[in-house]
Amino acid sequence: MEGVEKIEHVHGHHVDPVVEYQSLKFGMWLFIATELLLFGGLFAAYTIFRAKFPEMFAEQHLELNKTLGALNTAVLILSSLTMALGVTSIQRGKPKRLALFLLLTILLGLAFGVNKYFEYSAKFHHHIYPGTSIFFSLYFTMTGLHMLHVFAGMALLTTMLVLTLRGRFSDKYYTPVEVSGLYWHLVDLIWIYLFPLLYLIA
């Protein structure tokens, strides 16, 4: 992550810690804007195809496992909670508690991934692939791209965990933790829309 070593970095003298904190957070919000529009293309495709083929969506979404989807939603929302609690912990100067919450968050991300793995294998078992129909192509591309973001978020949080264990963060310096948290919440945010759009079509 940018900024972790900024303070001792030779070219970093121009940035005082307050500016650095604001810059990094603002930068992450811009990146979130980018991510929203990346998924935006898929949401646009979804809207158009759902309006075009309402029967296909109504029929084929029954193949998806609503229970597993709901479970994964709960897992991801819980992981967002643990992430948020982690940020408060370090703001209050409790790095050990932060490490615990980060670990929980990563494990919940992993649980999400495992769950998704079973879901995908069940689909493949029934000979459902991307390309089987427009609906399943949407299902696989949307959840697949989201899954990639879960992995990226987990990698980011693992880095944060290592840095926390090395004692890098305190109530005086936790910018990277908070900014990584923003990214993790984005992953949750996108799933909040994916779940009803794919699994809960009446």
Partner: peptide, 14 residues
């Protein structure tokens, strides 16, 4: 790669 069909009229795409 996968033939997802979003842009392929033969598969209902556009």
């Amino acid at each position: 790669v996968f033939g997802i069909g979003f842009f392929d009229p033969a598969k209902g795409g556009d």
